[in-house]
Structure formats: structure tokens, C-alpha cells
């Protein structure tokens, strides 16, 4: 554990909680892509199956349980509790175009051709693109609530901090996991455009709206 990984995990946790609180307090999931949230629930489920087989640390297990629990709670709020506020018409990204290629890639490129390992690889690849339906929704409506942009910023920050974590681990532990690193870099790049808008608009007190 190093400082980048810890702050990365906490930033990830902050993102998840910000989103849950936004939906709960406003009693609305307007502007939130349910499809992205389903993808994240699939990501956590397929990656954290090792909860049942491998114990790493109390911290590790607790965070996994919290991530999975929050992911399902978010999906429940969007599709059940506050379904009436879900903006399905704008959430029109075709997820099969992500899930199918990612599944194929996980079978082809992995560390070990075993069930658990392929699921882990699938979750890594899927996470790198899971935010696309959300970014697509924002580009379609041309705007995002400020609280939604804070959520996205924390999520992007988590990925960026994990890259610093990998640099750290490479230098001090000789550790590197090419699959995680490549997918993590791809994921971070997807946020770059958003980071730019966040810094130039949201941090200056303006609402995030895209030119028509």
C-alpha cells in the first residue's frame, strides 16, 4: 500500500458516495446513465469474486464489499426507487458494443486462461470503458449538473492516482501488471476532455454545458 493507491481508493469511494448522495438527497437520478452504473456493478461483481476464494487484507475485503454494495444500491435507485426520474431517452449508448468486444478481448489477452482470471480481465477491460454511456449522455444533453461533474472528477482522479501507484510499485516493488496498466491508461485518457472542462468551467463556478 502506498499513498497513491490509498488516495486513489478513497477518491473512488468518494465518487461512489457522491453519486449515491446526489440521487438520495435530490430524490432524482436525472442526468445519470443507468447503463454506466449497471456496467460498474458488473465490473465489481466479476472482479471481486475472489472475495470468496482469496483473503488479502481486512481493508481489501471491506472496500470490495462496500464497492459492490454501493454499486447495486445505485442501480436499484436508478431502475427501481427513482425510476420515474431516470432519463432513459438520453441514455441510448449501445452497451453491447462495449461488452461483447471486451468479453472477446478478455478471452484472448489474459494472464492465465482460467475462469476467475478471465472474469478478472473482463472486469479490468470493462471498467476502462464503463463510463462511456455517461459521457455520451452528457454530450447528448450538452450539460451536466455540478454534482455529477464532481462525481466524474473523483472517478477520473482515482484512475490517475492509480497510474502514479503503478509507477511507484514498478520502482519500489518491481511490480507491474501490463493488463491493468494499459486498461488504466486508456480509462484515464477518456477523462482528459472532461478534466479540461471541469477545471476551466466547474472550478470557476460555472455549470458544465457544452457548445451546441
Amino acid at each position: 500500500m502506498n499513498i497513491f493507491r490509498l488516495t486513489g481508493d478513497l477518491s473512488h469511494l468518494a465518487a461512489i458516495i457522491i453519486l449515491l448522495l446526489k440521487i438520495w438527497k435530490s430524490r432524482s437520478c436525472a442526468g445519470i446513465s443507468g447503463k454506466s452504473q449497471i456496467l460498474f456493478a458488473i465490473v465489481f461483481t466479476t472482479r471481486y469474486l475472489d472475495l470468496l476464494s482469496t483473503f488479502i487484507s481486512l481493508y481489501n475485503s471491506c472496500m470490495k464489499v462496500i464497492y459492490i454494495g454501493c454499486a447495486y444500491a445505485t442501480v436499484y435507485m436508478i431502475y427501481m426507487k427513482f425510476r420515474a426520474t431516470y432519463d432513459g431517452n438520453h441514455d441510448s449508448f449501445r452497451v453491447e458494443f462495449l461488452v461483447v468486444p471486451v468479453g472477446g478481448l478478455a478471452v484472448l489477452i489474459n494472464h492465465d486462461f482460467s475462469f476467475m482470471e478471465i472474469l478478472w480481465t473482463f472486469s479490468i477491460y470493462l471498467e476502462s470503458v464503463a463510463i462511456l454511456p455517461q459521457l455520451f449522455m452528457i454530450s447528448k444533453t450538452g450539460e451536466a449538473e455540478t454534482i455529477t461533474t464532481h462525481y466524474l472528477f473523483c472517478l477520473g482522479l482515482y484512475r490517475a492516482l492509480y497510474i502514479f501507484n503503478w509507477v511507484w510499485r514498478f520502482y519500489f516493488e518491481g511490480f507491474f501488471d501490463l493488463i491493468a496498466i494499459v486498461a488504466g491508461v486508456v480509462q484515464t485518457i477518456l477523462y482528459c476532455d472532461f478534466f479540461y472542462l471541469y477545471v476551466t468551467k466547474v472550478l470557476k463556478g460555472k455549470k458544465l454545458s457544452l457548445p451546441a
Binding site: 493507491r5 475472489d50 476464494s53 482460467s114 476467475m116 482470471e117 478478472w120 501488471d177 491493468a180
Partner: peptide, 10 residues
């Protein structure tokens, strides 16, 4: 051999 690669990150 459940976890041959050893994924310790979240």
C-alpha cells in the same frame, strides 16, 4: 492455485 496472478489491488 485459485489466484495464480495475485491481484491485490481494488
Amino acid at each position: 492455485s485459485q489466484d495464480p496472478v495475485g491481484h491485490d489491488e481494488l
